[in-house]
């Protein structure tokens, strides 16, 4: 294994770790608004790390084709970084307009 392979493996492992955190966060958090925090952003970070790792792995052989493929992966990363806040905002906006009340500590203690 070359140095690039090790770096790529570390990046992919970090991305998977963030993905795992996102999935568990979606399951554990109490309401819709707080679930958006892991869903919208830990996933974005995981995608960023994993895709950068795969792009680094592709740079093992420096031919034009693999460099172009790495550039395409970078394009996906940029695209995700632009669209992910927009999608998160669209979901949160739908929730606000439908009148979902955010979960707060006071509401939980009041329910007890």
């Amino acid at each position: 294994m070359s140095v690039l392979d090790i770096v790529a493996t570390a990046m992919i492992a970090m991305g998977l770790f963030f993905f795992l955190g996102g999935a568990i966060g979606i399951l554990r958090f109490p309401d819709f608004y707080s679930r958006l925090h892991p869903a919208g952003k830990l996933d974005t970070m995981g995608q960023f790390a994993a895709m950068i790792g795969m792009a680094i792995y592709l740079l093992n052989d420096l031919s034009l084709g693999s460099v172009l493929t790495a550039l395409k992966i970078l394009l996906i990363v940029v695209f995700v970084f632009i669209t992910s806040p927009t999608a998160t905002h669209a979901i949160v906006d739908a929730g606000v307009r439908a009148g979902l009340a955010p979960w707060t500590k006071e509401s939980r203690e009041g329910r007890r």
Partner: peptide, 10 residues
């Protein structure tokens, strides 16, 4: 429904 949407997005 919006929780399902979050799941699908993830």
């Amino acid at each position: 429904v919006l929780d399902r949407l979050i799941g699908v997005n993830a």
